[in-house]
Design a protein around this nucleic acid. Structure first.
Length: 781
DNA sequence: CAGCTATGCGCC
DNA sequence: AAAGGGCGCATAGCTG
């Protein structure tokens, strides 16, 4: 059977198909317009029915379609008796608050797998088809599953869909998607079916795999129930099978004990918090947004006009360029490709190539030297443009400073408002980053500008509520001190000292007071400020894996000096150097590093040798007795020779020459040194430990009964900060409790003292309030 | 048309 | 020897 047979635009109801999200938005419109135009949807459905019947019809006997209350009740009984079930939902789209629940699949081992149609409609009449259980009954039955182990894949989505569709909130005990991240955050396969195929079926072909090609979520609802069931009832079953596979891995591998702890006690407990976060959303001030729109569009137009006015200085050259563009070459897949730049009229200020032509070809600005490649750079990045000190470059910078704000935030955010409650409900991917951090999307609420004071003010507290922002002060540095276990560093925090000043004091040999930015009388101390800044950038540099040159640039000193400063810090705090060394060693010997709580970040390439040597083909010196397909090993001496030469050659050209030498000797050298990225190792531990801590806080905040009673709800977690709100009248009790729970959440394992600042406002970055005798009072500036 | 990469930039 | 860690998203421009 050829794959081509299945390449029919069809349907997808799979929430985990994140890649389809963007598509579905535009395609939904396309479908809506073609729907009335006639036959295409009927054809599609007929084709799908036939396809599913042909390939999945054989599973009809193993599939139970539940359309009456008694059958559902009996099946739930079986789930309860078994103590475990897998569950999966089918919907009309990817937004649980907007899209509809179409059907539910449930599976419990030893029984048939099931499909419960909820909201199928006739593609002819558009009416709901008969013999579907009501949301009430399904909700009532699902509620009986409380306390039973539950497997899901992307639990947050299914829980929210079922809340919206049946008013019953399930508790997931095993999210196979999160388990997959814990077991291997580098896993490239993200979706359930391919994961099941890869690990449970071990790559064997799977008759269900064609369903990945279904790509229109709106069609599923219109399929005949039998067709939908044949397709959908498979999912809860493979969810359970894949979860079983994962449970077995966790059970049999001793070195996954800590990761299992993280999975069960951090990740799985976070699910509930994320469900609430996404359901809650955040209030948005549309009126204020309109004001900003006017203001910023006017500014943007002004900046663009200013740019074009400056371009007029070169109008003759620009005209000439349009007729005779200067040819350029660029590398495409390693090959040099010639191209010319076509200038729009007027020049498109948003086009990088057009700006390059304008600045470097037309205005003849000498290119800067790229620090990294040491070559001429025709970049139009902010960093480069600033150095040019050119009016055109400045005009572009001014335009850009507004264009991102306008397109990504001011214009985009209001489009994200949910029509029912007027709030923005983004998605939070709780294991979005490989380090364990959250990420946010659709829209991303973790990158709302903070430098610009206008944008965040569009986010407001619910009427009658106040907004609170609590942040862990110096979370990552404290994580570093904790991981280093250095008494001196920890003591600095215990005494409430300015940490970087203390580091500078010990490392550079000055009194603590001489390393502070301000003197006791409030005047600035330039020397103290510089020392503190140096210590700070060394510590941050260690966290970010920065080299001396990069630090030197930031501090404004020579590379030599930067190296000396780093040595001073390492000498003053040997624990830091030791932590770095141990982390590298851990990565090199185990292939992964761990956080304070045992989360892993794997770096498999660290286990490889720097170089591998093999003969390209039969070398002259082959032993004739050893000919039968046995790989001839390159002698140790030869390998040593090349390894030594490569050790002293970091220039790309020199290295290429060495590889060429080896090739002429019939030896192929595989270079793994490029895959070994030491810059990520320390950071993975620090950032990951901080992420663990923040998640523990979210768990505690979310489950705290008192906070619940007081109407406290989280809005946006931003790595080391949590934005939340509560009814104004409860502020006096909530605010200190908020800070207390945040500070205590990490528990005894984290011995560095933790403190949290809570800021109280009515809108994000708005006027601050403080508590005075249990009342909120506006803070004076 | 959708899908991809490159470039650039917002946040912690 | 040197190396800026972790995200998501907008736009341009090319490709199938």
């Amino acid at each position: 059977m050829s794959k081509g047979l299945f390449e029919i635009p069809g349907l997808s109801t799979k929430e985990q198909d994140l890649a389809l999200l963007k598509k579905s938005k535009t395609r939904a419109k396309a479908t809506a317009t073609t729907k009335s135009s006639g036959g295409s949807i009927v054809n599609k459905i007929n084709t799908l029915v036939a396809m599913v019947e042909t390939h999945l019809g054989q599973f009809a006997d193993e599939t139970l379609i539940i359309q009456d209350e008694q059958t559902l009740h009996d099946y739930i009984d079986k789930c309860i008796a078994n103590g475990i079930y897998g569950i999966d939902t089918e919907t009309t789209g990817l937004d649980p608050l907007v899209d509809e629940l179409v059907g539910v699949g449930i599976y419990t081992p030893g029984e048939k797998t099931t499909y419960i149609p909820v909201n199928h409609i006739s593609y002819v009449t558009g009416q709901k088809v008969k013999n579907q259980l009501s949301a009430d009954i399904i909700g009532k039955e699902l509620a009986r599953l409380e306390g039973i182990d539950c497997d899901m894949f992307n639990a947050v989505f299914d829980i929210r869909v079922l809340m919206h569709g049946t008013s019953t909130r399930l508790k997931c005990t095993w999210d196979a998607s999160l388990a997959s991240r814990c077991l291997n955050e580098n896993e490239p396969v993200k979706k359930l079916k391919p994961l099941h195929k890869k690990y449970v079926l071990r790559g064997e072909d799977d008759v269900f795999s064609f369903s990945e090609l279904f790509d229109n979520p709106k069609i599923f609802q219109k399929l005949p129930i039998r067709t939908a069931a044949l397709y959908a009832a498979h999912d809860p079953k493979i969810t359970w099978e894949y979860a079983e596979y994962q449970r077995n891995i966790f059970k049999t591998k001793e070195n996954l004990k800590d990761v299992y702890w993280v999975f069960k006690n951090i990740e799985m407990l976070c699910v509930d918090a994320v469900v609430d976060l996404e359901n809650t959303g955040v209030a948005f001030d549309l009126q204020y947004n309109e004001e900003l729109k006017k203001k910023y569009h006017a500014l943007l137009d002004e900046k663009e006009a200013n740019f074009h006015k400056l371009c007029e200085m070169y109008s003759a050259e620009i005209e000439d360029y349009r007729v005779n563009p200067i040819p350029h070459t660029k590398k495409v897949k390693g090959k040099d490709v010639k191209y010319t730049i076509t200038l729009d009229n007027p020049i498109n200020i948003q086009s990088v190539p057009q700006l390059q032509a304008l600045l470097y070809d037309i205005a003849k600005i000498p290119p800067t030297i790229d620090k990294k490649t040491k070559k001429e750079s025709f970049s139009t990045s902010e960093e480069v443009l600033q150095k040019l000190k050119n009016p055109l470059a400045d005009a572009i910078l001014e335009y850009r400073s507004f264009s991102t704000l306008v397109s990504t935030f001011i214009d985009k955010l209001p489009e994200c408002i949910n029509k029912d409650d007027g709030r923005i409900h983004c998605k939070f991917n709780q294991y979005g980053a490989d380090t364990g951090r959250f990420s946010s999307s659709d829209p991303n609420l973790q990158n709302i500008p903070s430098h610009n004071k206008d944008i965040r003010k569009m986010f407001v507290a619910t009427p009658g509520y106040i907004m609170m922002s609590a942040d862990y002060s110096q979370q990552e540095v404290k994580g570093m001190a904790q991981m280093c276990g250095d008494e001196g560093m920890i003591e600095a925090f215990r005494q409430g000292k300015d940490f970087y000043a203390e580091i500078a004091s010990v490392a550079f040999g000055y009194p603590y007071e001489e390393c502070l930015e301000f003197r006791p009388d409030g005047t600035t101390n330039p020397d103290g400020k510089a020392r503190r800044a140096q210590a700070k950038s060394i510590l941050l540099g260690i966290n970010y894996g920065r080299g001396a040159a990069s630090i030197a640039e930031q501090v404004g000193c020579t590379k030599k000096e930067a190296e000396r400063i780093k040595d001073d810090v390492f000498r003053g705090f040997p624990a830091i150097a030791e932590f770095e060394r141990q982390s590298f060693e851990m990565a090199e010997t185990l292939g992964y590093v761990t956080t304070l709580w045992g989360r892993k970040r794997r770096f498999p390439s660290m286990l490889l040798p720097d170089y591998e040597f093999e003969y390209i083909e039969s070398p002259d010196n082959l032993d004739p007795l050893d000919m039968d397909d046995v790989e001839q090993e390159v002698p140790e001496k030869v390998m040593q020779k090349y390894t030594n030469r490569l050790k002293n050659a970091w220039d790309a050209k020199k290295r290429a020459a060495i590889f060429a030498d080896a090739k002429s000797e019939g030896i192929k050298i595989i270079d793994h040194t490029r895959d070994k990225d030491y810059t990520k190792i320390v950071n993975a531990r620090i950032q990951g430990t901080a992420a663990d801590m923040s998640k523990l806080a979210m768990i505690e905040l979310n489950k705290n009964e008192r906070l619940k009673e007081l109407g406290f709800r989280m809005l946006i977690p931003i790595h080391d900060e949590i934005l939340a709100e509560c009814p104004e009248e409860n502020a006096a009790e909530v605010i200190p409790l908020f800070a207390k729970i945040m500070s205590e959440a990490p528990g005894e394992r984290f011995i560095v003292p933790i403190s949290c600042d809570v800021e109280v406002t009515h809108r994000w970055y708005g006027k601050k309030y403080k508590l005075e005798n249990g009342k909120l009072v506006e803070e004076k500036e």
